[in-house]
Design a protein around this nucleic acid. Structure first.
Lengths: 303, 303
DNA sequence: ATGAAAGCGCTAACAT
DNA sequence: ATGTTAGCGCTTTCAT
């Protein structure tokens, strides 16, 4: 009978099944933007592992807009997804947090699972990396290279991930006894455009900088671009470092020194975590290691 | 009563609704790889428009593997998605085509809609660009700049999009009376890695080339990288052009001359097309315009 | 062992 | 206008 079904391309109706089993085999992932390489790679990993374990995934790009994010969460609950995965860092916004919390309580009472792939205050199982350590390591690397005037192109202000990477940078400077200079820190919004703009500001304000650490690779591309535009040579005049190691990073000119974040694995482990939890297995949060990858965009200071 | 529902965070069950209305408000999009910038931007556009019109989207990265693609189509049918959108060009494979055709017949008989955002032989409504014209225009641009030895880093061999872009290149050369040289054409698999490798091969085989046209931007990044590695200056020694205009293209070093494909709009129009069709409106295929965007990676030949 | 029936949460068609 | 009921395609329970 099963062969007959297969031969006739009979497709059992997951919708009907979902109604009775209360399991839809669908996961929702909320990202800032799927077309951002960082999130694209996470979604790809998540999708792969989910597909392997017979689950489908809804992509939801929120642009970090609280209302849009909430609207997506409501829609996902309406579709009775089995789990919601928050891929990006928490948006620091009081009203958003309260509303989200309420929604998620309802979702959980429906049997839903929530997980995060980035720093959140919520007590949900998560797969993350240590943002503070990553930023500290890279800053230390720059320090070891002899740099003292190290600028940071930071992430968006209201984002937890930004705070953590900023803290890592500050900690490394403090450890090395370098006086922190607020003028050396400029937010770049985690966009290439923003990275370029921040570079303009930094160059004007602190022309004595010798290195620029961008809190993500996408911004580092903007830094590289702007510096080249100014006729500055990298790494001769200025060293540049990024964070994430998106696949384009090694093809930047010059190839970008960066903190490798295993985005694909973050997504995969995230999928496994929620599917395991749905199967009733007890799951635990984990932290994946980061690693400095030194390429040609950074160099020892000085002649 | 409705207010009470809203206040209590009551989320009507779309699953149950789907069972009776035979509409799930879910779209499936099949892409080569969400983490590829080209597809990432398409998915983003599709998702935006779908979300606006109250539909959710399943992402399915097939890696252009026929079996994986077929498996995804089966899964999507099982989930009774309202529509399946094929974002990538047709895979030229006999057995795959037959099987796909059968599956889609079943899907249609269930009331499903199929659409494509790239060249396919299927007679489905589509939103596309003219790949031949785009490649012809760019080749002509290079020709106008005085180039005669123009290499092409082509796409994967079994892909319809590759054939079309190759044809545009060939047509422009023929129009200009330039003898085509098969040695100037090397496939690069539509990956950055492949673009770099193709460059190595081309440089060895045809050292007299003065321009390299990569059939997509992702490969152009590899070309740029490899050329820089060889100590060649762009555009002084070699002009480089791409295709797609992914958001990183203007931040390449030097900024990449390319054929602008409106990926986001492709996705948006794709979503509107299928949602309109689902609403019973009669829809028609459309072709979106491409445009040459000249940046710093190409220059007039010459001494 | 196999088969019949109830019910998941909705919508639509019906009756009041 | 309102309320009631049948049924969507499955799984699960219960009777045979």
């Amino acid at each position: 009978m099963l062969e007959a079904a297969a031969a006739l391309d009979f497709h059992p109706n997951m919708i009907a099944r979902g109604l009775v089993t209360a399991r839809t085999h669908v996961l929702g992932v909320i990202v800032h933007d799927v077309s951002d390489p960082y999130f694209g790679e996470i979604v790809r990993g998540l999708e792969d592992a989910a597909h392997m374990r017979d689950h489908r995934v809804f992509v939801c790009s929120s642009d970090r807009d609280p209302d849009r994010e909430l609207a997506y969460v409501r829609a996902l609950i309406g579709h009775r997804v089995d789990a919601i995965v928050f891929a990006g860092g928490a948006i620091e916004d009081r009203s958003y947090r309260t509303q989200l919390k309420r929604l998620l309580e309802g979702f959980r009472s429906l049997g839903g699972i929530v997980a995060t792939l980035a720093p959140h205050a919520m007590r949900t199982p998560s797969v993350t990396i240590d943002n503070v350590a990553g930023a500290r390591d890279m800053t230390r690397h720059l320090l070891d290279l002899g740099h003292r005037r190290i600028a940071l192109v930071a992430g968006p202000e209201h984002l937890r991930t930004s705070h953590l990477r900023l803290r890592g940078y500050q900690e490394a400077l403090a450890d090395a006894g370098v006086t922190p200079d607020p003028d050396l820190v400029e937010p770049g919004g985690f966009t290439t455009e923003g990275g370029a703009k921040a570079t303009v500001a930094l160059l004007a304000r602190t022309p004595d900088l010798t290195a620029i650490f961008a809190a993500n690779d996408v911004m580092a591309f903007g830094v590289l671009h702007e510096l080249a535009d100014e006729g500055l040579h990298i790494p001769h005049d200025v060293s540049v470092a990024g964070f994430d190691d998106i696949s384009m990073a090694r093809f930047a000119l010059p190839p970008l020194t960066t903190v490798r974040v295993p985005m694909g694995e973050l997504g995969q482990q995230g999928a496994h975590l929620v599917v395991d939890a749905l199967a009733g297995r007890r799951v635990r949060s984990q932290s994946l290691p980061t690693e400095i990858v030194v390429r040609a965009s950074t160099r020892r200071i000085g002649r």
